[in-house]
């Protein structure tokens, strides 16, 4: 029985492993997708775009939503591209760039403190050695806290479903790329089937902008 279980496991896993291996490095295919979409070549003398270590690839189920949180730096140009080798979703990946807006709020909280005991006139009471007599009191205090409200910066559904976008930023910030894979038919009931997944690449490139002194 143990042998047959191993055979069964191997049979079940092999397509998944093959799928995983095929996926590796798929983000670099995104440059080809951009060419097909008619993205012009860079102008002569323009600083090169370099791939950042924040790029990703992975297998995801059709219809799934995932988010990638990444950091961008002030005055650097960024290019985000999404791609897949799966013909069923090629060119159909939906994505948004979202930022959490920091908003100040006043929050009330209770705190328990040890304070010197006082009489009705406000005089501190002391023990026979002259030390203040302490008592525990719960008091309400307020503090400033910062809430985070998501704001959509870009939605490719409102931009002809373009699979890439370029942007720059006036300060260092954290952005979130929300990636939604289209649902392609029904998910198979047994999700071990690799047909239920698509390999997706997210390429994040950067180019030092003129303000950063990179145009040399």
């Amino acid at each position: 029985m143990r042998f047959s279980a191993i055979i069964l496991l191997t049979a079940l896993l092999s397509p998944v492993v093959v799928q995983a291996q095929k996926c590796k490095g798929v983000q670099f295919e995104c440059t080809n997708v951009r060419k097909e979409e008619g993205k012009k070549k860079g102008t002569k003398g323009e600083p090169a775009w370099t791939v950042t270590g924040q790029s990703r690839y992975g297998n995801f189920a059709y219809g799934d939503t995932t988010e990638v949180s990444f950091t961008v730096f002030k005055n650097v140009n960024y290019r985000i591209s999404l791609c897949s080798l799966d013909p069923q979703i090629q060119g159909k990946i939906m994505f948004q760039i979202v930022e959490r807006k920091t908003q100040a709020q006043t929050e009330k909280y209770m705190v328990t403190e040890e304070v010197p005991k006082t009489d009705k006139d406000g005089n501190i009471l002391v023990d026979q050695d002259g030390n203040p007599i302490m008592e525990t009191r719960t008091v309400e205090k307020t503090r400033r806290v910062y809430g985070k409200k998501p704001v959509t910066r870009y939605n490719n559904a409102e931009d002809s479903n373009k699979q890439w976008v370029e942007f720059t930023t006036d300060q260092d910030r954290t952005l979130i790329i929300r990636v939604v894979l289209p649902s392609v038919g029904d998910k198979p009931k047994n999700s071990l089937s690799p047909q239920g997944f698509a390999c997706v690449g997210l390429l994040i490139e950067q180019q030092m902008g003129p303000q950063a002194g990179g145009w040399k």
Partner: peptide
Amino acid sequence: PKVFYQIPTPNEFFSVIKE
């Protein structure tokens, strides 16, 4: 949605700082 957290490499950071 599952969130993946990415971090710039030290090279990316120092390239910006050097400017």
